[in-house]
Design a protein around this nucleic acid. Structure first.
Lengths: 115, 115
DNA sequence: ACAGGTACCTTGTAATGCAAGGTAATATTG
DNA sequence: CAATATTACCTTGCATTACAAGGTACCTGT
């Protein structure tokens, strides 16, 4: 059993949350997204990102437009739809609760009188 | 697309981490584990827990012994093996890094001069 | 025209939480 | 004692998503 396996499982769901956040801050294209994630030390590959973006678009959470690039092929710029923004709010809460719950479990022995 | 789906995905990997933590604090049987998770507002079902415990045991991270119960059928008490404890240390780090990375992404607009 | 760089895309696989159904041991009740 | 209730453990199939690997397409520079 490999730690990497568990890490991959931990990332599931979290990537969607992070990506929606990045896009909520302004229109970006895929390579921007990968760059921002990498900056935060979340390294993902295109084979993960593109199907994810496609899922979100098909679910109506994202919209996109083509923009010509001055240094290569055209780029697809994504933005959140209104329902995408609402969805992200809910994920904010979901994430906060999960982190809080996990902290409760892993910190329990360090706060003995908590019962 | 449902928030619940994303929540389920977010839980993947994290449950394994939490369960190893609970067991690291002393021998417990399955219903204890469910109780502690529920207390932390992580509600899981047996169909999740038993295959997970089986996987961890098969991977050599857990051992168990049967203990007669005074109020029902016998119980299977689990404990961490030495490699289980080492594995959990690594997961501690993995989780911390993931939380930190996620915070970096979702807090970026709130710390504008961070670039 | 060709090569290189950049951007987007797809498919199959591995892994795990959930849902649903089940077996088995022990205690309690009639 | 037999039947029922409670408790504990187990299994299987499904849905979902990150990864790995391979691919197409557009633009720029030589």
């Amino acid at each position: 059993m490999k730690v990497q396996n568990t890490q991959v499982q931990m990332r599931k769901g979290i990537l969607e949350f992070c990506i929606l956040h990045i896009i909520s801050r302004g229109e970006v294209y895929a390579t921007d997204v990968i760059g921002e994630l990498t900056e935060a030390r979340i390294v993902i590959v295109e084979g993960t990102l593109y199907p994810l973006l496609t899922r979100l678009r098909k679910a109506g959470l994202l919209d996109y437009k083509w923009v010509e690039s001055s240094s290569g092929p055209p780029r697809k710029y994504y933005k959140l739809t209104a329902s995408g923004a609402r969805f992200l709010e809910k994920l904010n809460q979901t994430w906060s609760e999960l982190v809080e719950s996990t902290q409760m479990v892993i910190q329990k022995d360090k706060n003995a009188p908590m019962a």
